[in-house]
């Protein structure tokens, strides 16, 4: 548990970064999450989370090329690190392990 400190929102962001591949940057991540979860997010929350994830070593980033589109400002692209992948796996394993232990009639009361 201690190895993989990953909050719920951090987990979503990390998963989205992995999903988006080459095109993961602030706005695209924000929109992907909004699309997937239906939550309304502030861009600063995304930035803060990415910053935190980078500090933990789960993502790495580099600055992209300038384009005229954003007033000439470059994008910072994020990609998941091996450490990040391992953290995702760990959290998923933990979840599955826990799911398997829950009695069947408790999680699916209607079917019984």
């Amino acid at each position: 548990m201690r190895k993989t400190q990953l909050g719920e929102f951090e987990e979503i962001v990390l998963l989205i970064v992995a999903t988006l591949g080459d095109n993961a940057y602030g706005v695209s991540i924000k929109e992907a999450i909004e699309l997937q979860t239906g939550r309304d997010l502030s861009i600063s929350a995304i930035h803060a989370t990415l910053h935190r994830l980078q500090k933990k070593g789960y993502v790495k980033s580099f600055m992209g090329g300038a384009s005229a589109e954003r007033g000439g400002r470059r994008k910072r692209f994020f990609s998941i690190t091996p450490l990040g992948t391992r953290a995702l796996h760990a959290i998923r394993e933990l979840r599955e392990q826990l799911w398997n232990q829950v009695p069947h009639n408790v999680v699916n009361p209607k079917t019984t």
């Binding site: 602030g26 706005v27 861009i43 930035h47 910053h51 954003r70 400002r73 910072r76």
Partner: peptide
């Protein structure tokens, strides 16, 4: 180091 991406994202949004 952070300002550029912030402003860029804001402008895009």
């Amino acid at each position: 180091t952070l300002v550029e991406e912030m402003q860029g994202d804001l402008l895009e949004l």
